[in-house]
């Protein structure tokens, strides 16, 4: 059995760890609230641009933009959104698992001679694909807790250019979906070509927009913003997920530390009692011998 002093230092060290995890838990809780607020704030834009795209799908435009047309899939691109920091439970691991499953599936579909274009957001994804290998064409890291669209523009443009040049024929987004504080679900969404939702397919009378200056230019700008808003939304949501996951992970770490301290305290008390008993019996034995 470990001696009393050893156990005492162990308890002290675990108590220190517990202090840290508890502090991290509280920080994550307050950051999560802010991240959720931001998620709410970015929602109106996403809703409105969705509505516009919905209208566009209902219209019968003479000009169809490449982003809205399906074409033969020779190669795919994928954007993976992860967190910048660890200590958030299985959030990133689960995300990468989902990403890998999809990547393998796509790789089978397009054949092994082509490399899937990967785009990473957040240092964790960058690190993961550096280890795993893969054709990483662009990356953005250290976006902080309050990312702006500007941080993403470059990365999105790389992928859109690849789509325009025919290097990729489909673009996917892999990111975490914020279900609630306890649950975050990794999800794979198709960004390009844009898929109209069911309600958009309703048949109505034939009409088309007036475009100024011209349909290709206007649609290019609109659809680019649509894609950007989807990716931005994904990023903001992922930050909320990260904080929520961290909060839960740190809470269970603090609880586990508490349990460990209790057990160690018990062991310490037992060891101390054993030492005392031994001493007494030695004294009694000594006295009897005299």
């Amino acid at each position: 059995m470990a001696s009393g002093k050893e156990i005492r230092t162990k308890i002290a060290s675990i108590k220190n760890t517990q202090k840290i995890t508890r502090a991290m838990e509280m920080v994550a809780a307050s950051k999560m609230r802010k991240a959720q607020d931001r998620m709410q704030k970015s929602r109106p834009y996403a809703e409105k641009i969705n509505r516009v795209i919905g209208h566009l799908a209902q219209a019968h435009p003479e000009y169809k933009h490449a982003y809205m047309l399906d074409r033969e899939v020779k190669n795919v691109g994928v954007i993976v959104i992860s967190s910048d920091r660890g200590l958030c439970g299985g959030l990133n691991t689960n995300l990468f698992k989902t990403a890998l499953t999809s990547l393998r599936k796509w790789q089978q579909e397009i054949g092994t001679d082509r490399k899937i274009n990967i785009c990473t957001v957040g240092s964790k994804a960058a690190g993961f694909f550096r280890r795993y290998g893969g054709n990483v064409v662009a990356q953005a890291t250290h976006l902080g807790d309050n990312p702006t669209l500007e941080d993403l523009i470059g990365l999105i443009k790389v992928m859109l250019d690849a789509y325009n040049d025919g290097e990729i024929d489909k673009l996917f987004l892999v990111s975490n979906d914020f279900v609630n504080t306890m649950t975050q679900k990794p999800e794979v969404k198709q960004l390009l070509p844009i898929q109209p939702t069911e309600q958009d397919k309703q048949e109505t009378h034939h009409w088309d927009y007036l475009y100024e200056p011209s349909a290709p230019e206007v649609l290019e700008m609109l659809l680019m913003r649509y894609i950007e808003s989807l990716i931005y939304q994904g990023l903001v949501e992922n930050i909320a997920c990260e904080q929520a996951a961290r909060m839960v992970a740190m809470k269970s770490a603090s609880d586990n530390a508490g349990n460990l301290i209790e057990e160690l305290q018990l062991a310490y008390n037992k060891a101390r009692q054993a030492a005392i008993t031994q001493e007494i019996s030695e004294i009694v034995g000594g006295a009897a011998a005299v």
Binding site: T120, V136, A138, Q139, A140, I153, G154, L155, D161
Partner: peptide, 17 residues
């Protein structure tokens, strides 16, 4: 937003990679 700025940002993202 401007075309050149977007392109610069794209270049930057590539360079980071």
């Amino acid at each position: 937003r401007a075309k050149d700025i977007d392109e610069a940002a794209a270049l930057e993202a590539k360079q980071r990679a």
